[in-house]
Design a protein around this nucleic acid. Structure first.
Length: 403
RNA sequence: GUGGACGUAGUUCAGUUGGUAGAGCACCUGUUUGUGGCACAGGUUGUCGCGGGUUCGAGCCCCGUCGUCCACCCCA
């Protein structure tokens, strides 16, 4: 027996229904906000991710499905969605047009990691990317949109926000932080010492108790924001306050991808295990330029579908469609023209085996049909069908044409 | 990559100090050859993850291996 690869899952029945319900809901809402669908390749040149996600990130450093294809190209299965969308945006030369563009996408992402709760090697994201809008109103709008999606799916969440600053304030802050971390280097844990070199802001997030105490006095990025970033962040919090969206400013919130700047946010749930981020995103005003496009401000997010699968409250399932069956062999073929006609607008289940009455009733119930239509000897002879409404329990015998 | 737990019917699991497998659910068939969900009565299902070893004998003990889960790292 061949099983799916480690960290990859098949979805059927309730699970696949949940999956499509999530996509449908998110899609519907994104469209209301002016987003249109973009489909980009799963396989991209490795260089795309190295340049956008960043060589220093774990994603690029050790988690990519990277290989050489038969033509000798260095390629990767996409580990996230933004890079491909930005590349497509530039490939289509949309960066040369002074028009705002908004795209939503969904699909599989691949990261070679050890699977655990809420973490798979092939997982799915629904995401949006808004290009050409520098206003913090757009950051706010995107956060609002995600809240709306989660509300409609019946998912509770906590929102954390932060500002990562820009090319003016971030380097200034980083310098100060590294200096302050270097002072207490000796006392920090092994991981932290490694992080000072790779991603110093992560040090602030260390779970180690001793580190935490030591880091309490470390410089905060919030205090270093420049004249542009600071008012923007204050504006964002004011807008959220006004909209009644509760949030927490988490000055240690760093996104794992290098391209984020200014607004960064994460939606978390405390009901799903250690991998608690259910959506994340932020502003990435420099990425288009980074990938050889014209400088274009942009902001986006992604929702982890698998992370919210078990949190989604599904609408009640209703009985739907018609079950058709015959109780004598000769009547079976009579069902097909009827089914073809009804399938123009209804869901129809046809049982090909002639069976007893009771057996058909059970079958209709199991198919969760609203109506059970049967043809027995009498009905065959009279050109009629017997129909029962499984909800109201009403039943009647009518001419085939009249049904 | 590191650490821990666990692999027995479709599924959830039980299996006593080693004596060649069991329960609930699900499924199928019946309970007046024309009335579903409920009830009742029957019935099907397993190379006990795989490979070695110890033993007269292994689901149980030992070694290896593969896989799953959970956590760390990191992230959606």
């Amino acid at each position: 027996m061949i099983n799916p690869l480690r960290g990859m899952k098949d979805l059927t029945f309730e699970e696949s229904q949940r999956f499509t319900h999530i996509i449908d809901t998110a899609t519907r809402i994104a469209q209301r906000y002016g987003y249109s669908y973009i489909e980009t390749p799963i396989l991209e040149e490795t260089a795309l991710f190295k340049r956008s996600v960043g060589e220093s990130s774990d994603i690029v450093g050790k988690e990519m499905y990277q290989f050489e294809d038969k033509g000798g190209n260095d390629v990767c299965m996409r580990p996230e969605g933004t890079a491909g969308v930005v590349r497509a945006f530039i490939s289509a030369k949309l960066d040369r047009q002074p028009v705002k563009q908004k795209f939503y996408y969904y699909g599989p992402m691949f990261r070679y990691e050890r699977p655990q709760k809420g973490r798979l090697r092939e997982f799915h994201q629904f995401g949006c990317e808004s290009f050409g809008e520098a206003s913090v109103y757009e950051d706010f709008t995107i956060i609002t949109m995600i809240s709306q999606i989660f509300n409609e799916l019946g998912i509770g969440f906590d929102l954390q926000i932060n500002s990562l600053g820009c090319k003016v304030c971030m380097p200034r802050y980083k310098e100060n932080l590294i200096a302050s971390l270097t002072d207490i280097k000796e006392e920090l844990c092994e991981d932290c010492n490694r992080r000072i070199g790779t991603n110093p802001i992560r040090v602030l997030d260390c779970k180690n108790e001793k580190c935490r105490l030591l880091l309490a006095e470390s410089p905060k990025l919030i205090d270093y924001l420049c004249e542009e970033c600071d008012p923007d962040f204050k504006k964002l919090t004011a807008l959220l306050d006004k909209a009644g969206i509760s949030y927490e400013v988490n000055s240690n919130l760093v996104r794992g991808l290098d391209y984020y700047g200014k607004t960064a946010f994460e939606f978390v749930s405390n009901e799903i295990g250690a991998q608690s981020a259910i959506a994340g995103g932020g502003r990435y005003d420099r990425l288009v330029e980074f990938l050889d496009g014209k400088p274009t401000p942009a902001v986006g997010f992604a929702i982890g579908i698998e992370r919210i699968m078990e949190l989604v409250q599904m609408p009640e399932v209703q009985r739907e469609g018609i079950y058709m069956g015959a109780m004598t062999e000769e009547a079976v073929e009579v069902l097909f023209p009827l089914a073809a006609e009804k399938r123009k607008e209804s869901k129809v289940t046809v049982e090909y085996n002639s069976k007893g009455f009771k057996s058909h009733m059970k079958g209709a119930d199991k198919a969760n049909a609203k109506y059970c239509l049967l043809i027995g000897e009498d009905e065959l002879k009279n050109g009629t069908v017997w129909v029962k409404d499984l909800e109201s329990k009403e039943e009647k015998t009518v001419l085939r044409e009249a049904f």
